[in-house]
C-alpha cells in the first residue's frame, strides 16, 4: 500500500470519526469525547497531507543514505555561482549578498542563508570579499555565524571579516536606498538576491543591471519573480530557492529530500488531475458515484 493511499484512507477515517463524533454529540447532547477534545478534527485533511509529505521526504532521504543515486536537472543560476565569484575575484571587486528583507522566522530567509553558507565557502576559497547588509538584526547574527563557519570549513578563518555582515534598517525602502547607494558607490561585480523580497526587488535588480554586475536572484514571492526574471542574469524560481542548498552541496540527505519534494508534487498533481476530471465528468453525466468521488476529493483538500 502506498503512503498516498494510506493518507487518503486516514483522511477519510479521521473525517468519518469527526463526523460521527459530531452527530453523536448533537443527538445525545453529551459532552465531546477525549479524542474530539484533544484533536482538532477540522484540520484532519491537513494533518494527513502533513504526514504524507513528511513520510515521502523522509523515505527518500533514507533511500539516498542507502546509496540511491539522485539526478538533479541543471539549474543555471546555481551553476553560475562559481563563475560569478571568480569574476568578482578577477575584477578585484566585492560580492554583494542580500538575504531578503524578512526575519529568521521566514523559511525563505533561511534558504537564502543556506546559499550564503555555500557562496561563503567559494568566496573563502577564492579569497574574494563578500558584503552582506541585512534588514534584520537576527539575520545579521545568523549570517555572521553561517559565513564564519564557511570560512572555517575551508581553513580561511583569517580572511573572515564580521564587519562586512551588518545591519542597516528594518524599514523596507530605507534598506533599499542604502543597498542601491552601496551598489552605485562600490560597484560589486556580482550581486546575489536570495530570500523574500517585495517592491524593492526591481529597484535593486535594475541598479545592479545599471552597474553591470552579474546578478543571481531567487525568491518564492511569486509576485516579484517577473521583476527578477526581467532584470537579472539568473533567477531561481520559487521552489528552486529551496533546492539550492541540496544542489550546491550534493549531500545524499539533501538530494533525497529534493526527490521527496518531487514525489509530493507528483502526488498533488495527480490528485488535482483526477479530482478535476471527476468533478467535470460528474457535472456532465450527473453520475452519483462521480459526485461522491468529487465530495471525497473536496474533503481531501479541506474544502
Amino acid at each position: 500500500m502506498t503512503p498516498a493511499l494510506c493518507g487518503l484512507m486516514v483522511a477519510g477515517l479521521l473525517d468519518d470519526a469527526a463526523a460521527s463524533a459530531g452527530k453523536v454529540a448533537a443527538i445525545a447532547n453529551t459532552p465531546p469525547g477525549f479524542l474530539e477534545r484533544t484533536f482538532d478534527f477540522d484540520k484532519s485533511a491537513l494533518f494527513c497531507w502533513l504526514v504524507v509529505i513528511s513520510a515521502l521526504v523522509l523515505w527518500n532521504i533514507a533511500r539516498a543514505r542507502r546509496g540511491m543515486k539522485v539526478t538533479v536537472r541543471h539549474i543555471a543560476g546555481l551553476d553560475a555561482v562559481e563563475e560569478a565569484v571568480g569574476r568578482a575575484t578577477e575584477m578585484g571587486r566585492p560580492i554583494l549578498f542580500v538575504p531578503g528583507i524578512q526575519d529568521m522566522d521566514n523559511v525563505q530567509t533561511i534558504a537564502g542563508l543556506t546559499v550564503l553558507a555555500r557562496v561563503g565557502k567559494t568566496t573563502a576559497e577564492y579569497d574574494a570579499q563578500i558584503e552582506v547588509p541585512t534588514a534584520r538584526s537576527l539575520v545579521m547574527t545568523a549570517a555572521r555565524e553561517a559565513l564564519q563557519a564557511s570560512y572555517m570549513s575551508v581553513g580561511r578563518t583569517d580572511s573572515y571579516n564580521p564587519e562586512l555582515v551588518y545591519y542597516v534598517t528594518d524599514e523596507q525602502f530605507g534598506y533599499t536606498a542604502y543597498v542601491s547607494g552601496l551598489m552605485v558607490r562600490k560597484k560589486p561585480a556580482t550581486c546575489f538576491y536570495l530570500g523574500q523580497f517585495f517592491a524593492e526587488s526591481l529597484i535593486l535588480a535594475e541598479t545592479g543591471n545599471a552597474i553591470g554586475a552579474i546578478q543571481i536572484a531567487g525568491t518564492a514571492e511569486s509576485s516579484q519573480l517577473p521583476f527578477f526574471v526581467a532584470a537579472c542574469d539568473y533567477t531561481l524560481i520559487g521552489e528552486e530557492l529551496f533546492a539550492a542548498s541540496a544542489y550546491l552541496s550534493g549531500e545524499p540527505d539533501q538530494m533525497g529530500g529534493l526527490r521527496g519534494q518531487d514525489f509530493c508534487k507528483a502526488l498533488v498533481g495527480g490528485v488535482l488531475v483526477v479530482a478535476v476530471a471527476a468533478a467535470t465528468l460528474a457535472a456532465i453525466t450527473g453520475s452519483a458515484a462521480l459526485d461522491s468521488a468529487t465530495g471525497f476529493f473536496r474533503m481531501l483538500v479541506g474544502a
Binding site: I53, V57, V107, G238, E239, F242, A243, G257, Q261, C264
Partner: peptide
C-alpha cells in the same frame, strides 16, 4: 503549490 511543498520539506529538514 510547488513553493508550499518546498517550504514544508525545508522546514522538516
Amino acid at each position: 503549490i510547488g513553493i508550499a511543498i518546498g517550504v514544508a520539506a525545508t522546514s522538516l529538514k
